[in-house]
Nucleic acid binder design. Structure first.
Lengths: 250, 250
DNA sequence: CCAAAAGTGTTCAAAGTACACCCATGA
DNA sequence: TCATGGGTGTACTTTGAACACTTTTGG
């Protein structure tokens, strides 16, 4: 297939419609939830789907993902907490024809969904376990990949704090790990690991109020100094907080 | 931005030229190398670049990556050893205009490059350390991301065997880890870890011939039974072979 | 005082590291 | 028999899991 670009025109090449989709995850009442919209228009009219839509001219991938998320759900992700997940397509995923989609992943605290707009109605958080298999397009696959990525990232990055507010207790952040991984962790050993990881938590001096039992110290995420030697290296948790080895296939 | 798709036509949306690029890595004489072509045509005429090119109609992402790699370098990757890396763009990476590229990663044994074709001349392996900063487009960034992904994957996947031929000694696969990570590993402890990991290596019964010293047993990669519970879960090395903790920032 | 949750100390088992040592070959 | 690299055994150190125990609150 010899292709001979006659000049500096790219128009001779096959061009594709490109969308961005967003897997926005949070933890509500100890349950891992994903932000979904209900589609107003065909295809898959009335079905649940990830927020997303077509890219606009002159936009970057991350910009488009942030714009679609805000347009359709009212959620405005904290900068730095949106990362690229993977690309899907272009064939076999939209009945209208070939569409390439670049999926993104956002971890957000459980703030209320402000609005639904654009092609979307009913933007809302749904427990991940209740929507698997029910989504439009290939969004079930994308959601599964996003959840797996989030699970893996908890181990070696300070990402879990993104699910909490700006100040949180050790028990709250432990609840994030338990919800995302679907396991129970020993509160006492977790406390040691979390407070022992360098560059993860920073004491505020405050204590939590209200609940039964002894008040817990409040922490915030420590200022993230990028480690490693590459420009693409993200902040790293050291030592990592590993998920328990799942028992061999039963 | 209300977009109202009038029917089942996608043509109303902004479409982008989409390319695939391939980071093909191997180990030659203990050095991590990447497969590069020299560009025959502008832009970046005469510069080194990753093999890649525009997608064709009806093609999947992986298909396109495999086709471009074969067209431009003669290398035909083993199925299952090509994975998606990330997407880049569309802005600011091609002087001709917006182009979205989906980068892929291939680990290959050090077989000879058969041919150069298409837009490429001089397809050849280059040590990664000598080409950083010299590549066309944003390929320096893509290469750095690919190398980092390969380094991380060695830890928890049987991927290192992809760099070797179908049969190899423990010392050879140890050389892969040492070259990719840029460290020295204790041969005796590595031997135990590698042979102790379940589902990684399988003895052939043969021994290597020729070199000085005691002949080494030959192994092959064990048949990969997919573990985990998801369709997207790849084979996992258990226990993982971790890279030594790099000394804290000096 | 009692219940409940936070936080600390201690013990034991598992895993990783360093390295002594033996094995099998070529020169 | 010596040099060279393959492979095993073993002691030491570090890490992680389990859990008893103390602290600090509300009822």
């Amino acid at each position: 297939m010899s292709r001979t670009p006659s000049a500096d025109a790219l128009a001779v090449f096959h061009a594709l419609p490109v969308t961005v989709d967003v897997v926005a995850l949070t933890v509500r009442d100890g349950v891992l939830c994903v932000l979904l919209i209900r589609r107003l228009l065909p295809p898959f009219e009335g079905r649940l789907a990830l927020p997303g839509g077509f890219m606009m001219r002159g936009e970057g991938l991350g910009d488009a993902a942030r714009r679609e998320l805000t347009e359709e759900t009212g959620v405005d992700p904290v900068p730095g907490h949106l990362e690229q997940l993977a690309s899907y397509g272009p064939g076999g995923r939209d009945p209208r024809g070939d569409v390439l989609t670049v999926a993104h992943l956002v971890m957000a605290p459980d703030f209320p969904v402000i609005a639904a707009g654009g092609d979307a109605a009913e933007a809302a958080w749904h427990p991940v376990s209740t929507v698997q298999g029910a989504l439009a397009f290939d969004h079930d696959l994308i959601l599964a990949d996003g959840v797996e990525r989030a699970r893996a990232k908890l181990e070696y990055s300070p990402l879990a704090a993104a699910f909490c507010g700006s100040e949180f207790t050790i028990a709250q952040i432990r609840g994030v790990y338990e919800a995302v991984w679907g396991v129970r962790l020993d509160p006492r050993n977790f406390h040691r690991k979390a407070t022992g990881a360098v560059g993860f938590l920073e004491e505020t001096g405050q204590v939590s109020s209200g609940d039964a039992g002894r008040p817990a110290a409040l922490y915030r995420l420590a200022p993230q100094s990028r480690q490693g030697d590459g420009p693409t290296t993200a902040a790293v948790l050291n030592p990592p907080i590993m998920r328990p080895a799942s028992s061999p296939a039963s």
